[in-house]
Nucleic acid binder design. Structure first.
Length: 590
RNA sequence: GGGGUCGUAGUUAAGUUGGUUAUAACGCCGGCCUGUCACGCCGGAGGGCGUGGGUUCAAGUCCCAUCGGCCCCGCCA
């Protein structure tokens, strides 16, 4: 065991040494970030999780200390004892939080050596495969540590808030039952029951409802969830939810409680004061105005419906789309004359990925438009469009004509693209919005049936229940999402607490009574034993952390993330297992 | 399942229309240096271009396949 560690205890973190410690003897532990050896005096930047301080080795300290200091290399682990002093006149380093002081070392022990690291710790642009392979070194970098420290604060503030409000934290199982609806399950084979599988939870949804039936009344959990779907910059196969459920409440109670949570979290983590309540937007309005159910309302550029104006247009394409049940909509970029004709034509590629077959644009001049479609429009049409869109000289209009979903996807995403490109987004803004009145279910072309928009336990609006058999797509759900800066950070609903209504929803989803009993029988049973009215919500803790840390990738807020192929480059998971392991589980690779 | 993009010393990158021994910076190693903080100066080592085929007199440069990183569509109740 190290002599040093057994006799000396740390007095300060490196980053905490300050002018007020002038003259004090301190004990520090940390990593050598950089050594500047002048032959005589040697400087080392000593780093720990709280920061960096310069330590100084003078030859006068004696050969044993000074000689040892010569051996120091990058990322050696050091224990030092020394005296803090104000730096000599003119030697302050304004780039360092501790730059007014330094520690003159009298005792040094190299606790461990280090191979030369594969990348330097003050470098920004390291390729991600190298970072992820040496994640434990990547996590030594202050920029990455900062994210995980904020994530920890967020989790602690969450527990604090729910504890203060009478919530009970309950853990639910990881080894559960595979469910038919929703995402693809991660399966875990059972050794004891040959041929049977557990599924890792996509969320603790059913369990938290059962806890309401049990009478816990207010539940929360910071829960790992698993979904075997393809990854994105903001999606990992395992992620964390702040999961909440309450009994004897309405939507209003939940939204108010969650607004309080957001306020508490942002205060604790970023010292930002959120104005409450958050604005609300009905789903249909969000789609019509922003083309998305997770609108970024930090800027305007709302979508305008031009279908009534152009349904008899001289431009045949517009008229034909309108006649075929499609819509023609547009957005307006203010004073976007900076966009060249090449830029404008290039934007067609942006909307093409959403299925739009074209993108018409128009630069508005004093008297006319510069536009490939201007010559096809009747003069009064162009005037009506300009009037409806409040277009002024220098503005640029973008039109998409297609079926509604394509138009909304195309313009919604073009709007975001332009918002970024034209610098319309205030990076400091925190624009929260509740989205309400989602459709209960949507028709799935691939499955040829209605599927739940949220999940099959979401309560419909009572007055819409008659529509369930006649026009299922029109039934509104008592569901709500919370959107922040264009990112869905949470969602939930009032649940069905009556068995008869739950059965009707399963039926509308094409689940036979038998199927429903087989998959969710325990929930249906529970609803028959005095289930209280209840509802809840779950936040994506990772996405929330991303926004708060301004991380561009969800990987930057997860300690050990997976790559896009769902692999861990550090541990090499997933990997093959031995034939013995497979045999024990009665499994065979086909 | 599909589209795009990238892969060259430890790291980050350059590498013309294919053409001698593949560049640079940082890092690394050795030496010198008592106030630096991206310390400085002198010297040195290190890769055959993700992998496998092919075209060619000649391939880091062209073609095919394959592996991997990233972004997106589909998918994600």
């Amino acid at each position: 065991m190290s002599q040093f560690i057994s006799t000396e205890k740390r007095t300060h973190y490196c980053g905490q040494v300050s002018v007020s410690d002038d003259g004090r003897e301190v004990i520090l532990f940390g990593w050598a970030q950089r050594r500047r050896d002048h032959g005589g005096v040697i400087f080392v930047d000593l780093r720990d999780r709280e920061g960096i301080v310069q330590i100084v080795f003078n030859p006068e300290a004696g050969e044993s200390v000074h000689g040892e200091a010569h051996k120091i290399r990058n990322e050696y682990v050091l224990a030092v004892k020394g005296k803090v002093r104000r730096r000599p006149e003119g030697m302050d380093n304004p780039n360092l939080a501790t730059g007014q002081v330094e520690v003159v070392i009298s005792k040094l022990e190299i606790l461990n050596e280090s191979k030369t690291p594969p990348f330097s710790f003050d470098e920004e642009d390291i390729s991600e495969n190298v970072r992820l392979k040496y994640r434990y070194l990547d996590l030594r970098r202050p920029a990455v540590q900062k994210n995980l420290i904020l994530r920890s604060k967020l989790a602690i503030a969450t527990r604090q808030y729910f504890n203060d409000n009478g919530f009970i934290e309950v853990e639910t199982p990881f080894l559960g039952k595979s469910t038919p609806e929703g995402a693809r399950d991660y399966l875990v084979p059972s050794r004891i029951s040959k041929g049977a599988f557990y599924a890792l939870p996509q969320s603790p949804q059913i369990f938290k409802q059962l806890l309401m039936v049990s009478g816990f009344d207010r539940y929360f959990q910071i829960a790992k969830c698993f979904r075997d779907e393809d990854l994105r910059a903001d999606r990992q196969p395992e992620f964390t939810q702040i999961d909440v459920e309450m009994s004897f409440i309405t939507e209003e109670d939940i939204m108010q409680m969650m607004e309080g949570l957001m306020k508490a979290i942002f205060k604790a983590c970023l010292n930002r004061d959120l104005p409450l309540p958050f604005p609300r937007l009905k789903y249909a309005d969000a789609i019509n105005r922003y083309g998305k159910d997770n609108p970024d309302i930090r800027f305007g550029m709302e979508i305008v419906d031009l279908t009534p104006i152009v349904k008899n247009s001289g431009f045949k394409l517009f008229a034909e789309v309108a006649a075929a049940g499609g819509v023609v909509k547009a957005i307006k970029a203010d004073s976007a004359a900076a966009l060249s004709r090449k830029d404008l034509d290039g934007l067609a590629d942006v909307v093409a990925v959403y299925g739009a077959k074209g993108l018409a644009w128009a630069k508005v001049n004093a008297a006319d438009w510069t536009s490939p479609i201007f010559k096809f429009l009747k003069p009064e049409e162009a005037a009506a469009i300009g009037h409806t869109m409040n277009a002024r000289e220098g503005d640029v209009l973008f039109f998409v004509a297609d079926m509604p979903k394509v138009v909304h996807d195309a313009l919604g995403n073009l709007r975001l693209h332009l918002g970024k490109r034209l610098n319309l987004i205030d990076p400091d803004a925190l624009a929260f919005t509740w989205i309400t009145e989602f459709p209960l279910m949507e028709y799935s072309e691939t499955e040829k049936r209605y599927v739940s928009t949220h999940h099959p336990f979401t309560s419909p609006f009572l007055e819409d229940i008659p529509l369930m058999t006649t026009d299922p797509g029109k039934v509104r759900a008592r569901a709500y999402d919370l959107v922040l800066n264009g990112s869905e950070i949470g969602g939930g609903s009032i649940r069905i607490h009556r068995q008869d209504i739950q059965a009707r929803v399963f039926s509308a989803l094409g689940l036979s009574e038998e199927d429903a009993k087989g998959k969710f029988g325990f929930l249906l049973d529970a609803l028959e034993y005095g289930a209280p009215p209840h509802g809840g919500l779950a936040f994506g803790l990772d996405r929330l952390t991303m926004i708060m840390t301004r991380a561009e990738s969800i990987r930057d807020v997860i300690a050990f993330p997976k790559t896009q192929k769902a692999a861990c480059l550090m541990s090499d998971a997933p990997s093959r297992v031995s034939i013995e392991q497979l045999m024990e589980l009665s499994l065979k690779i086909v």
